[in-house]
């Protein structure tokens, strides 16, 4: 029996991360099968004025292509979307994404709270939120929204996180379903993948 709260109901995964999250996220992306069915939204703190290079760096080990969406682009299965530099990324009802240039939140644009909160609204209890290592509290409120809407919440184990502020902030404001090391997050996604494919 699995120790994870797995379910076939899940429709999307949203992952937030900041300082110290690049390595574990690269590792996760290097294992998620190319045809893992759910869309994945990545909102990672990044340099505001460097438009290029990040997607390429993340893509090196990823089995899936990674794409920075355009405003109002439709969400497709199997895709990995990365919040572009200097824009906030929101998930809209009706299966699209939108971008915005609203003020910085937690000193960041893209801000993780915006992506997680909008995704929680759009996907309700069918969203999995994962918050990784980072040096500020961005994402904590977003995780709270995911929990409020019945979604599944997960943080990288603060013990393993290079900088534990971000996962700890989420742990302090809301109930987190799973506190996992990177390898366990991978295990979770692979088990979920198996379950989603089984009839």
């Amino acid at each position: 029996m699995t120790r994870f709260k797995l379910s076939k109901k899940y429709k999307a995964i949203a992952i937030g991360g900041s300082a110290g999250s690049f390595q574990p996220i690269t590792k996760i992306l290097s294992v998620i099968p190319k045809d893992f069915p759910l869309p994945i939204f990545l909102c990672l703190h990044r340099l505001k004025h460097v438009r290029h290079g990040f997607v390429e760096a993340l893509s090196i080990k990823s089995l899936k292509p990674i794409h920075e969406p355009f405003d109002k682009e439709s969400i497709k299965r199997e895709q990995v979307y990365l919040a572009p530099a200097n824009y906030h990324l929101s998930i809209e009802l009706g299966n699209t994404m939108s971008l915005s240039t609203e003020r910085l939140i937690n000193n960041s644009r893209p801000a993780i709270d915006i992506t997680l909160e909008s995704a929680a609204y759009a996907y309700r209890d069918k969203l999995i939120g994962i918050l990784m290592s980072g040096a500020n509290k961005d994402g904590a409120l977003g995780m709270q929204k995911i929990k409020d809407r019945g979604g599944l919440t997960m943080v990288q184990d603060p013990e393993e996180s290079m900088i534990s502020t971000m996962p700890n902030s989420a742990l302090s404001v809301t109930e987190i379903d799973h506190v996992l090391k990177t390898d366990e997050i991978i295990e979770f996604i692979l088990e979920l993948d198996k379950m989603l494919r089984s009839s």
Binding site: K72, S90, I91, E92, L93, S98, S100, E102, I114, S118
Partner: peptide
């Protein structure tokens, strides 16, 4: 107006 930013 786009819903999520308008709502914010």
């Amino acid at each position: 107006y786009a819903m999520s930013s308008f709502k914010r």
